[in-house]
Amino acid sequence: MWVLVLGGLGVAALLFAASLDLPEFGGDRHPYGARAVEAALARHTANTVAAVNFDQRAFDTLGEESILFCAALGTVVLLRQTRDEHRVRPEPARVAPPVRRYALVALPVTLLIGLYVVAHGQLSPGGGFQGGVVVATALHLLYIAVDYRALERIRPVGLYATADAAGEAAYLLLGAAGLIAGTAYLTNFLPYGTFGTLASGGTAPLLNAAVGVEVAGGVVVLLASFLDQAVEIEDAAERAGPGETRHPAPPSPSEEKPT
């Protein structure tokens, strides 16, 4: 605890000292912002936020992407079906016609918007994180419009789990490519291209696309794991037959059925 307290006090002192040198709120002096914009334009990346995320601090973005990857992996491990669980197929549920029509119309539109946000991440607001979530959400509009079984047909969880891992691996390998090219890890080493086009920004659009694939796959896997968890716990005493002695007993293995 003393080590924790001393470390915390040291970090607090450094943060306080750093805050004394911050630009005034609302002022015209923004040294970090000016440098970020200048670096983004020098590397032909129109969206400065994307240039920061996938170029100037791409290593930090790797950590953020890995958090989602580890969360999806941990969820799959913890919520996987065990040997003593029984899975029951879900019953179809009635959906109101207006909800059904709206969701079915919104599904392809939402999916297209998500793909657009990912593809144009280096040009306009958005990117792999935002677009990946929109793509994953679009697929689940089928769950709202029809039922869980319809969602299962277009959502093979194994395929999206592979996409999640592939997106994470692509980001790592793109970073390693910088080492092979003779620069630092995750350095923007490709030709910057023509400013304002989809191919501009060097490695930024590639890293952005890798994040989009990883986020879309990870969110689908997370939602699939949670949607499958309508768990009913039955007490062994409640299942005892007529004339049998009923003693308090611990809960039996759970019976799991999808919502």
Rank of each mutant, 00 (worst) to 15 (best):
Y32T: 12
L179G: 08
T137V: 08
A237N: 06
S124Y: 10
A106W: 00
I233Q: 12
V135S: 02
S19E: 13
F129R: 03
R87L: 09
F16Q: 14
E232M: 14
F189D: 06
G158C: 07
L123D: 01
T197F: 07
L22W: 11
V77I: 13
D235T: 13
T137C: 04
A96L: 13
L9K: 04
A176H: 13
L190Q: 06
E152C: 04
F25L: 14
Q56W: 09
G121R: 03
R35W: 04
L139Q: 01
L159G: 05
L172G: 11
A17T: 12
A184D: 13
N188T: 15
A106G: 04
A161W: 15
Q130P: 03
I154K: 01
L172P: 05
A216H: 00
L73Q: 02
R29M: 09
T203A: 15
E214N: 09
T75M: 11
V133N: 11
A103D: 10
L62S: 02
G158D: 03
V37R: 14
L68E: 00
A150V: 05
L68N: 00
T197W: 06
P108A: 05
L190M: 09
A93P: 01
A58H: 02
N47E: 14
V219T: 04
R149F: 02
F129T: 00
A224G: 02
T187L: 04
V220K: 03
E232L: 10
T48C: 07
L115Q: 07
S124R: 12
L190P: 01
S225A: 14
R89F: 05
N53A: 15
A230R: 06
G218V: 10
L222T: 02
V215W: 00
R80T: 09
E214I: 03
W2V: 15
E255M: 11
Y102H: 09
T82C: 09
P191Y: 09
T162F: 12
Y143V: 09
H120K: 14
S66H: 10
H44W: 06
Y192I: 10
V213H: 02
R89A: 15
G114C: 05
Y160L: 08
Y116Q: 15
G196M: 06
V76F: 11
A249V: 09
G114R: 02
G218F: 04
A163H: 09
A42Y: 06
I233C: 11
A216K: 00
T61R: 01
A199N: 12
E238I: 06
A230C: 12
R57A: 05
A119V: 15
G128W: 00
E91N: 04
H140E: 04
G63T: 13
P191A: 13
A237G: 04
T137L: 08
G212E: 01
A240F: 06
V77L: 14
G132E: 04
A17L: 15
P251F: 08
L227P: 02
A166C: 07
A177H: 10
T245D: 11
G167R: 03
G132C: 07
H120T: 15
A72F: 06
